[in-house]
């Protein structure tokens, strides 16, 4: 199976007024052809930073890439020239964001925005692009594509806006990787389901090869993903196939996350939460970043950062408990 994307030991930091903030501390991720990799973690864990780094959309003056490579189809994206990276964007890698309204230009019509993307990636003229845009909207199950194409973003509902965003992201025939950064977090539950079905359908009809799906919701992971990676404070703490995450997860953080999900059935008196606070990334804890909040911590946990250890086929954990 070919590797579409391989992130090797990516270290990224931000220069802030209070000091250097270590946003990514050696990220290792692999996405193979046909994978839908779910990246799950709390707010502030670095998920969006990973996504934007792949796209090359992190502004480099406050941010700094200290180490690592992002290898996409054999090329290191970090060493590409600006023009080459711009050619890749929207063409072979595209991204959809959490807030669809704030990702659309408010003064241009939806149809024009999709057509703009189509014209960029396919060899068509203005009118053909317009036609294709309406076609695309129809393919995504929008009932009245012509009306929607003539509308401005504020005239559409959240779900429609997100579909429009997906249409823009899918405008290239060369798409290999789709990054979805919490695409359903700002939508209500019924709309969520239809968007997730849409994304699953894209993979099934081969519109896109593979997908990096970023979320903080385990239910979404269960719906869509084939593999899961758990990220905490800029570190990947566990990666495993989707089946293992619920039944056989190993890392204390993953376990705590799963426990924190409220249960619909059964008697649950209190909501479980993880004790302690998210670490200060300017002065992170020594050793494993999670150790201050870990109930099973050992002495070595506050001395050394744990390396990824293979537990099983496709299942890796970064924890001293499994040395």
């Amino acid at each position: 199976m070919k590797n579409i994307l391989q992130i090797k030991n990516l270290k990224l930091s931000f220069n802030t007024d209070n000091g250097i903030l270590k946003a990514l501390n050696g990220i290792n991720l692999t996405i193979q052809e046909g994978d839908i990799l779910g990246l799950i973690g709390e707010s502030g864990s670095g998920k969006t930073v990973v996504a934007l780094s792949i796209m090359g959309l992190i502004s480099i003056p406050p941010a700094q890439i200290n180490d690592g490579q992002i290898i996409f189809k054999g090329k290191d994206l970090l060493s590409l020239k600006k023009k080459e990276m711009t050619n890749l964007r929207g063409n072979e890698i595209s991204i959809i964001f959490q807030e669809p309204f704030s990702s659309l230009d408010p003064v241009f019509r939806i149809g024009d925005q999709i057509a703009e993307a189509i014209k960029l990636h396919q060899n068509v003229n203005k009118f053909e692009a317009r036609e294709k845009a309406i076609e695309m909207l129809r393919k995504i199950n929008i009932q009245d594509p012509v009306r929607v194409a003539e509308s401005l973003p504020y005239e559409l509902s959240g779900g429609m806006q997100q579909r429009a965003m997906i249409a823009i992201a899918m405008s290239s025939p060369n798409l290999s990787l789709l990054i979805a950064d919490e695409p359903t977090s700002s939508l209500d539950v019924t709309v969520q389901k239809s968007i997730l079905n849409l994304i699953k359908g894209l993979k099934e009809n081969k519109s896109v090869n593979s997908c990096l799906f970023i979320t903080h919701d385990f239910n979404v992971i269960a719906e869509v993903c084939t593999k899961v990676a758990v990220i905490y404070a800029g570190n990947i703490v566990e990666t495993c196939p989707m089946e293992s995450i619920f039944t056989n997860c190993k890392h204390p953080y993953t376990k705590a996350l799963l426990k924190a999900v409220p249960k619909v059935s059964g008697n649950q008196a209190e909501l479980e939460s993880i004790k302690g606070f998210f670490p200060d990334l300017v002065k992170p804890p020594l050793g494993c970043y999670f150790h201050p909040r870990c109930l099973d911590r050992k002495y070595i946990c506050q001395k050394e950062i744990p390396k990824m250890i293979k537990i099983d086929e496709g299942h890796y954990v970064a924890c001293h408990l499994f040395n």
Binding site: T86, S94, F97, S103, A117
Partner: peptide
Amino acid sequence: NYVIALKAKGL
């Protein structure tokens, strides 16, 4: 935010 989204399109 939409400025980043526009760049992400490849413009």
